[in-house]
Design a protein around this nucleic acid. Structure first.
Length: 629
RNA sequence: GCCGGCGUAGCUCAGUGGUAGAGCAACGGUUUCGUAAACCGUAGGCCGAGGGUUCGAAUCCCCCCGCCGGCUCCA
C-alpha cells in the first residue's frame, strides 16, 4: 500500500487522549451493541476498537514492542508504539492485511474492571501502561481493561461488540510522536488509520484530501506562477514572481488604506538593530532561540568585552516593537497625543526550526502589517474595539468568515511579568472589548506573551491546520523597560500601555491562506491579470490591442493572447490561469467596437460595448467585490 | 529540532549496476479558426550537492541540502 501520509483534522480530538477515565458515565455501556448508542458514538467506538486491533497485530509482529495509547480521532484512529525498528510502508500494508483478517475472525470485546495491583501485574512489561496506571490510580482503585483475541489493553471502554462490526478503514501513515506530547520524552511511532462507517464515506474522505491537495497554496503558487522557493536562496525565504507580487501589493494597498483612514501613521525602521536594544526589550532573554545569530562587527572595530558580545553585535529584527518604542522616545509625548499609532510593513526574520517550515504559512522572512499603539490605561477598551473593527472590515473584504478567536491568558510559572494588578486590568479590558464586539472566543490559560495577554484570530488551511493571522496584544512591560513615557494631565510622567497588533498577521502567511481560500481564483481586485483579450484570428489583433490599451488606461491589468493557437485553446489557457474575464474578439466585435465577455465560471455575458466593459470592471475593482466567484 | 518518506527536463512521472525516457509546458514552422486542448518539428538533464564502493552508479553505502507528512514549537 502506498502511504498517503495525510490526515485532516487530527489535532482536533474530542477528548484529551490521556483522560482515560477508568469508568464510563453511568448508563453508557463499555461495550455496545449496534443501535444501542447513537451514530456518532458508534463511529467513535469502531475507531477505538480498530486501534485495539492495530495494537494486537503490531504486538504479534513485534512481541517485544511497547504500546502507549490509541484513541479515536476525527478521521479515524491512531496508536503509538515503541518498537525495535522503524516501521516501513511495507510493514504498514502487512499490518493492515492482518488487521482485516483479525476483524474477520469476529473476536468479541470483553471489558472488565480490575484492581490497581492486578493491573500493574498484567501490564508488567508495559512501561507506558504502568505510567498511566500510576496516574489513574490517583482517582480510582478500579481500572478498566478490554480484551479481544489474546490482546488486552488498559481501557475505559467504548467499544463495539466484536471486531467484525468495525467499519472500513485504511492505514495511512506512520509518524514520530513524543510520549505524552513532551519532546523531552521518548519518541514513539504513531500509526494513523482512516476509518468511516461506510466504504463510501471512507472514499469520500480520500476524495476530500485530493481536492484539498488541488487547492494547496504551494501547488497553486507554482501553477499560477505566484511564488517560488529555491534551495540556493534558502529554506523559508519565499520569492514572489511578478503575479504574486501583484497580489501582495494589493493586500498592502488595502491595509494601508484602512489604516490611514483610522489614524495610523506609517514609520520605517529598517531590518537591523544592535543587540543592546533587544537586550533591554527582553527579546534576547526570551526569544533568542528564534532570532538569527548575532552579526559581529569587523574585528578592528570591536571594542566590547567578551561578556558584552551580544550587546555590541547586530541582529536582524524579529519584531518591530523595540524599534517603534525607540522612535516614540524621540520626543516627549502628551496624553493629548494618545493614542499614537505607528504602523510598519517591513520584513522580520525569525529562525524557525526546519521542521516547522511550510510553504508561505511558516517562513523565516515574514512581513507583518505591524503596528504599535501607545495609549493611556483607560484607553485600552476603546482602542481594542477599534482594532477589532479593523479586523472585521478586513476579513469581510476578503470574504473570509471562517475564523475563530482565542483569548490568551497567563498561566502558572515564571515566564510572565510579575505584576498581578496590571495583568488583571489588561485581561479585563481585552475580554470586555471582545464581549462588546459580540465576538465568540475561547480562553487559553498559559498562552499569553511574556509581556501581556493577547487575542488571536485563527484560520484553518485547506489541510485542516490552524494558523494564527490577526493578533492583538497588550504590553505591560516593554514600554517601561525601554523608558517610554507620556505626560499626564496633571503633569506627571507615566508609562503608556502599548497595543501590539497585526491584522493580516504576515502578508506571506495570509497570502497562502488567501490562495487556498479562493482556490487560486482571486476576486477581480486581487487578480494578477484581471482580463485577457482573445482575438480569434490575426485580423482581430488590432482591436484586441486597442481594447487592452483602453482598459489599462482605466487602471486595469489586461493582456492580449496573441499566440497562434485556436480560440478554444486560448480560452482553456485563460480559464486554467483563473483570469476573471476573457474578452473574445472576432469579426462581430471588431465591427461593433465590443468584446464578448466570458466570465471565469464559464458564464457567457455576450458581446458588450467597450465602455460598458470598462465601467463594469472598474466598478468591481474599486469596490473590491468578491467577484467573480 | 525529532521520526518516517521523498529528490530524474519548467511541471507530472517512468527508468533497481551496463549508452537517461514519456506526456504536458517551452521554442520554430504550418494553420486564421466563435467559447475548455489544431498539426508538424526542435530543443531541453553535473539524475539535489559532496564523498565512497565498483571495471562501470540515476540505481548500492556515508554525509550534507531541500521538499512532504506527523510530533514538538510558534513574541
Amino acid at each position: 500500500m502506498r502511504t498517503l501520509g495525510l490526515q485532516l483534522d487530527d489535532r482536533r480530538m474530542a477528548d484529551d487522549p490521556f483522560d482515560l477515565e477508568p469508568e464510563l458515565e453511568a448508563g453508557v455501556p463499555a461495550v455496545a451493541a449496534p443501535g444501542e448508542v447513537d451514530e456518532a458514538e458508534w463511529l467513535q467506538r469502531m475507531r477505538h476498537s480498530a486501534a485495539h486491533v492495530l495494537a494486537q497485530v503490531v504486538l504479534e509482529m513485534f512481541p517485544e514492542g511497547k504500546i502507549a495509547i490509541g484513541p479515536p480521532i476525527d478521521t479515524g484512529f491512531y496508536y503509538d508504539f515503541d518498537l525495535p525498528r522503524p516501521l516501513t510502508p511495507e510493514d504498514l500494508s502487512q499490518i493492515q492485511k492482518r488487521m482485516r483478517k483479525e476483524m474477520g475472525r469476529n473476536h468479541r470485546f470483553v471489558w472488565e474492571e480490575i484492581s490497581v495491583d492486578e493491573a500493574r501485574d498484567r501490564f508488567a512489561d508495559q512501561p507506558f501502561k504502568q505510567e498511566l496506571i500510576d496516574q489513574f490510580s490517583l482517582d480510582s482503585d478500579r481500572l478498566g481493561i478490554c480484551t479481544h483475541a489474546a490482546f488486552t489493553d488498559l481501557c475505559r471502554g467504548g467499544h463495539v461488540e466484536s471486531t467484525r462490526q468495525i467499519g472500513p478503514f485504511r492505514l495511512t501513515s506512520v509518524a514520530g510522536a513524543y510520549w505524552r506530547g513532551d519532546e523531552r520524552r521518548p519518541q514513539l511511532q504513531r500509526v494513523y488509520g482512516a476509518l468511516f462507517a461506510t466504504k463510501e464515506e471512507l472514499d469520500a474522505h480520500f476524495q476530500r484530501i485530493e481536492e484539498a491537495q488541488r487547492r494547496d497554496h504551494r501547488r497553486l503558487g507554482r501553477e499560477l506562477d505566484l511564488f517560488a522557493f529555491d534551495e540556493l536562496v534558502g529554506a523559508g525565504v519565499p520569492l514572489l514572481l511578478p503575479d504574486g507580487a501583484i497580489v501582495r501589493q494589493e493586500m498592502e494597498r488595502l491595509i494601508r488604506e484602512l489604516q490611514e483612514a483610522r489614524g495610523y501613521r506609517e514609520v520605517w525602521t529598517g531590518h537591523l538593530a544592535r543587540g543592546e536594544l533587544f537586550r533591554r526589550s527582553g527579546h534576547l532573554e526570551n526569544y533568542s532561540d528564534v532570532m538569527y545569530p548575532a552579526m559581529r562587527e569587523h574585528d578592528e572595530h570591536r571594542n566590547g568585552s567578551e561578556d558584552d558580545e551580544d550587546g555590541e553585535a547586530y541582529f536582524l529584527k524579529p519584531m518591530n516593537c523595540p524599534l517603534h518604542m525607540t522612535l516614540y522616545n524621540h520626543s516627549l509625548h502628551s496624553y493629548r497625543e494618545l493614542p499614537l499609532r505607528y504602523a510598519e510593513y517591513t520584513t522580520l526574520y525569525r529562525y524557525e526550526k526546519s521542521g516547522q517550515l511550510s510553504g508561505l504559512t511558516r517562513v523565516r522572512s515574514l512581513t507583518q502589517d505591524d503596528c504599535h499603539i501607545f495609549i493611556t490605561p483607560d484607553q485600552i477598551t476603546d482602542e481594542v474595539a477599534r482594532v477589532l473593527e479593523l479586523v472585521q472590515t478586513l476579513f469581510t473584504t476578503y470574504g473570509m468568515p471562517n475564523f475563530r478567536y482565542e483569548l490568551s491568558l497567563p498561566g502558572e510559572g515564571g515566564k510572565y511579568v510579575d505584576d498581578p494588578q496590571a495583568w488583571s486590568i489588561a485581561v479585563t479590558a481585552l475580554r470586555d472589548a471582545l464581549d462588546k464586539a459580540g465576538i465568540d472566543y475561547v480562553e487559553q490559560q498559559g498562552e499569553a506573551a511574556f509581556y501581556g495577554p493577547k487575542a488571536d484570530l485563527f484560520v484553518s488551511d485547506v489541510m485542516g491546520r490552524e494558523w494564527q493571522l490577526s493578533t492583538i496584544q497588550l504590553d505591560l512591560i516593554q514600554p517601561a523597560r525601554l523608558g517610554c513615557v507620556y505626560v499626564a494631565d496633571n503633569g506627571e510622567r507615566r508609562t503608556p500601555v502599548v497595543i501590539h497588533r497585526a491584522i493580516h498577521g504576515s502578508f506571506e502567511r495570509f497570502m497562502g491562506i488567501l490562495i487556498e481560500h479562493y482556490a487560486g481564483a482571486f476576486p477581480l481586485w486581487l487578480a494578477p491579470t484581471q482580463a485577457r483579450c482573445i482575438p480569434i484570428a490575426d485580423r482581430h489583433q488590432e482591436w484586441a490591442d486597442e481594447v487592452a490599451r483602453e482598459l489599462r488606461e482605466a487602471g486595469l491589468r489586461v493582456d492580449v493572447d496573441d499566440g497562434n493557437e485556436r480560440m478554444q485553446a486560448k480560452i482553456r489557457n485563460g480559464q486554467r490561469r483563473k483570469i476573471p474575464y476573457l474578452l473574445v474578439i472576432g469579426d462581430r466585435e471588431v465591427e461593433a467596437r465590443s468584446a464578448a465577455v466570458r466570465v471565469r465560471n464559464g458564464e457567457d455575458l455576450g458581446a458588450m460595448p467597450l465602455d460598458q466593459i470598462r465601467e463594469m470592471l472598474t466598478q468591481l475593482k474599486a469596490s473590491r467585490a468578491n467577484e467573480p466567484a
